[in-house]
Structure formats: structure tokens, C-alpha cells
């Protein structure tokens, strides 16, 4: 087999996988703290992309340079969607904190449908073009021998830096420690003086910020967005989180990369038609042998 082709597919999968990982982190963080699958997370990603589009449109009109637009638009998207994540938790999940497990799940599905339709009605049902904000540099392509396009390179670098920062933050800061403590045992953490409600809000804010970043990166990579882009991206990221072991932060990253690579190699060596089929076969296989995911810890069910 052609080695160059293999490397190209490898990096293609890594790029796609790092986006899955960014979104999967949001699923895994929230699950780790309150044991909820936040199905509206994909929509947060979509709203991030839309916010960036609106801000980029405005700045472009005012004549900002492309690089500046990218940074400002990404920051605006992160702030705005963090507010969405925070509010969403307060409205849809906090009142159901002590309800049976199924209730917040249904609430999450409702939130997802609501946000999709809200954007559909308030913005547009059509696809809208997203400005090409990522730098389009020819020498990068040539330097990497077409293995990595400029936007792929940019996505990889940004998402890896973000993920490393997140892990350091969780590991070494007071807030990160409080978060881990809450994840281990919320009641105990509260007894020791940790404000659990505050930690939960922070978790939603961080998760949403990561999803927004993913949304901005993918939107400027693909060049167009509509209200429905969050669904498949959200499903894939959720899959990645389960694959890696839901609740585990390194697991989400590993799961995302594994899924991205599996899809890329399937398209490259088998056929694009089987991309989703083989990716999900892999998921089933891994879950048969490791029911808690690649890095998941086995937990005693509290039933």
C-alpha cells in the first residue's frame, strides 16, 4: 500500500477526530458531574457556528482583517454559547436535579428540538455561506506534501492546545480539583464546602465553550452552515464519548480520535458508502469487549 496515502488518511482522520473530541468533551464533562447525557450539546455547537457567522459578518462589514475576525468571532461565539449552556442548565436541568433519571433526558431532547427550531425560525432554513476565515496558505500545503491542508493544520493545532489546556486546568487548578471532587461524590463534596451548583454551572460553561470552538473551526473549514448541522456532529461526538468511556476526559479525546481515524480509513480503503457502518461496527465491538469504553472505569450501578 501507498505510504503517502496512508499518512494522508491518517491526518485527515486526526483532523476530523479532533473536532469530535472537542464536542465529546462537553458530553463527558457533564456526564461525569451530574450523570446526564446532554442531547442539546450538538445544538450548542450549531449555535456557536451561527454566532461566529453573525459576528464575522458584522466585522467583515466594518473592514476588519481576516485573522482578527477569526479571533474576535471565535471569542464572541464562546462567550455567547457559554451563556446559552449556563441558561440551559438553569432552565432545563436544574429543576430536575432530583427527578428520576429519565426526566432530564427527555428535557434534554426537548431542549435540542427547541434550539434547532428556534434557529430555523429566527435565522433561516437554508444553508448560509460561512466566510473562509482560516488562513489559506499554499506553502503549508507544499511543505506538508499535501498531507495536511492549512485549515486541517489549524484545526489540529488549535484543538490540541485547547485540550491540553483543559486537562491541565482540571488537574492543577482549585476549580478543576473541585470539579473532580464533585464528579466523585457530589454529597461528600458539598459537605466539604464545595458549592456543587456553582461547579455544575462551570461545567456547562466549559463544555459549551469547547463545542462553540469546534463549531467555529468546522464552519470555517466547510464553508457553510444551517440549523441542522448539530445533529450528526452531536451524535458522532456522543458516540466518541461512549467509545472512550463516558465520564473520562482523556477517554473523550481518545474516543474522538479513534472514531475519526476509523471513518477516514474506511472511506480511504473501503468506500465512502460504508463510512458510518464500519465506524459504528467498531463502536459495538469495543463495547462488547470493554462495556465501559476504552478508558472508562467500571462503576457499580446504584439501583
Amino acid at each position: 500500500m501507498d505510504f503517502q496515502y496512508f499518512i494522508e488518511l491518517f491526518f485527515g482522520g486526526l483532523t476530523r477526530g479532533s473536532i469530535y473530541a472537542l464536542i465529546a468533551l462537553g458530553y463527558t464533562l457533564v456526564y461525569g458531574i451530574i450523570g446526564l447525557i446532554n442531547f442539546a450539546h450538538g445544538e450548542i455547537y450549531m449555535i456557536g457556528a451561527f454566532t461566529a457567522l453573525l459576528v464575522a459578518g458584522l466585522l467583515g462589514y466594518l473592514g476588519f482583517p481576516a485573522g482578527g475576525i477569526l479571533i474576535v468571532a471565535a471569542l464572541a461565539a464562546i462567550v455567547w454559547t457559554s451563556a446559552y449552556g449556563y441558561t440551559m442548565e438553569k432552565i432545563a436541568y436544574k429543576p430536575l436535579r432530583n427527578a428520576p433519571r429519565l426526566s432530564p433526558l427527555i428535557s434534554a431532547i426537548g431542549m435540542s428540538t427547541f434550539l434547532q427550531n428556534y434557529v430555523l425560525l429566527a435565522q433561516t432554513p437554508d444553508f448560509v455561506p460561512f466566510p473562509m476565515l482560516l488562513p489559506d496558505i499554499d506553502w503549508l500545503l507544499e511543505k506538508f506534501n499535501y498531507v495536511l491542508g492549512p485549515s486541517d493544520f489549524f484545526i489540529l493545532v488549535v484543538s490540541f492546545i485547547t485540550m491540553i489546556c483543559l486537562m491541565l486546568w482540571i488537574r492543577y487548578t482549585r476549580m478543576g480539583k473541585a470539579m473532580r471532587a464533585t464528579a466523585q461524590n457530589r454529597t461528600m463534596a458539598m459537605l466539604l464546602g464545595i458549592d456543587a451548583n456553582h461547579i455544575i454551572s462551570v461545567t456547562f460553561i466549559v463544555g459549551s465553550a469547547l463545542a462553540a470552538l469546534g463549531g467555529v473551526l468546522i464552519a470555517s473549514h466547510m464553508g457553510q452552515i444551517n440549523f441542522g448541522i448539530g445533529f450528526l456532529a452531536g451524535m458522532k461526538a456522543f458516540t466518541a464519548a461512549v467509545l472512550g468511556g463516558i465520564g473520562s476526559v482523556p477517554g473523550a479525546v481518545l474516543g474522538g480520535l479513534t472514531l475519526g481515524l476509523a471513518e477516514s480509513f474506511t472511506t480511504g480503503y473501503v468506500a465512502g458508502n460504508y463510512e458510518d457502518v464500519l465506524a459504528f461496527c467498531l463502536l459495538i465491538l469495543i463495547l462488547i469487549f470493554r462495556p465501559d469504553g476504552i478508558l472508562g472505569k467500571h462503576q457499580v450501578q446504584k439501583v
Binding site: L9, G12, R16, D152, I229, K236, T267, A271, N273, E275
Partner: peptide
Amino acid sequence: EAITPDAVDFSPIVRKLR
């Protein structure tokens, strides 16, 4: 080949096309 219209990116098929 077929592609999934909603996929987050098309880079594998683009590489294959090259």
C-alpha cells in the same frame, strides 16, 4: 462512491479523489 451530505468534513474523500 457515496458521501454523507451531513458529515462534518469531506477530507477522506477529497484525499481519495486526489
